[in-house]
Design a protein around this nucleic acid. Structure first.
Ligand SMILES: [Mn+2]
Ligand SMILES: [Mn+2]
Ligand SMILES: [Zn+2]
Ligand SMILES: [Zn+2]
Lengths: 154, 154
DNA sequence: ACTGGTGATCGCATTCGATGCTAATTCGCA
DNA sequence: TGCGAATTAGCATCGAATGCGATCACCAGT
């Protein structure tokens, strides 16, 4: 496998992509007659600025620290709402639970075979790919997952 | 999203990729001191020539038709063995159970959003992709999944 | 062919992530 | 402030997959 690494690597590292602000999410929820509860507000805050790919359990742990008694069920509920609103995306890999991605930008992922760490990667010249085998299939989206070894595990 | 469709589309459709022959798999199992039982032989046969992406349950159904009493546990066992031997690969998507892929050729997939149908696609010029964000990560593999609508659901 | 030993089979229990259900609560609008 | 509708939280349930272990059977060596 040959992969060309862009020289613009650094410029991307500077950018931080996350879920939209708690204020925006609040309006979005209200606009859909969804109530803005303290539990949801807390999750809005936790997700905003989050650059990783947390699981529901991880967010539940973070949330519990600030709001003891919040239920895992509610965390799932809210994350699912955000996903169906397109404010969050979800990723699934073999042998681990669903990861939620606060970065809804058009991007792809690199996943470490050892530790499962997931990082965002950006791909240029996607349209120079030549794909055969669609035969009637209408592609609308594409997602690339690179498998390999991360810096820590290497 | 812009995707270039290869004019060689048809030539690929002619090729049939599958798991290796029951005879080869038999030798492979013996070489590893794994016994070649009737249950395994049946699965070898079912997988050979299989061009789809069946679930363990689906293969269990097929197997049960020819060998009533075979257990789902044994089907999983054998499929997992084949995967760890590299004779079969496994794929996982959100909201559905693991799909086993008898095609271990280097290829990618297109998945219908409606019905979940999965088809093989082949990608050329992969090395013209420009990837940024690796930063220490050593990529070894890549897998592309196209999302969209299949001919039946369109 | 027989046999011993190691690996396989199969059914049942168990795990784990995720969702269904619902009484009690709370949000948000009037 | 009060009402109706949405939410919460806890527990039950689900589905896919694996752990376990008594019994079975492949197969190498005789
Ligand atoms: Mn991401
Ligand atoms: Mn395939
Ligand atoms: Zn790692
Ligand atoms: Zn379809």
């Amino acid at each position: 496998m040959l992969i060309r690494t862009s020289c613009r690597q650094e410029s991307f590292a500077d950018s931080i992509f996350s879920v939209r602000s708690p204020e925006v999410l609040t309006s979005e929820f209200r606009a859909r007659s969804l109530k803005v509860t303290p539990q949801r507000q807390l999750l809005f805050r936790l997700l905003h600025g989050h650059t990783g790919h947390p699981t529901a359990e991880a967010l539940y742990a973070e949330a519990s620290a600030q709001m003891p008694g919040i239920s895992l069920r509610t965390v799932y509920q809210t994350l699912n709402d955000l996903v169906s609103m397109g404010e969050l995306s979800s990723l699934q890999f073999a042998g681990s639970s669903t990861r939620f991605d606060p970065n809804v930008d058009d991007h792809h992922h690199a996943r470490c075979d050892e530790c499962g760490e997931l990082r965002d990667v950006y791909v240029d010249h996607f349209d120079s790919l030549l794909v055969s085998g669609f035969a009637g299939f209408t592609p609308e989206r594409a997602s690339i997952v690179f498998g390999g070894v991360c810096a820590d595990c290497g």
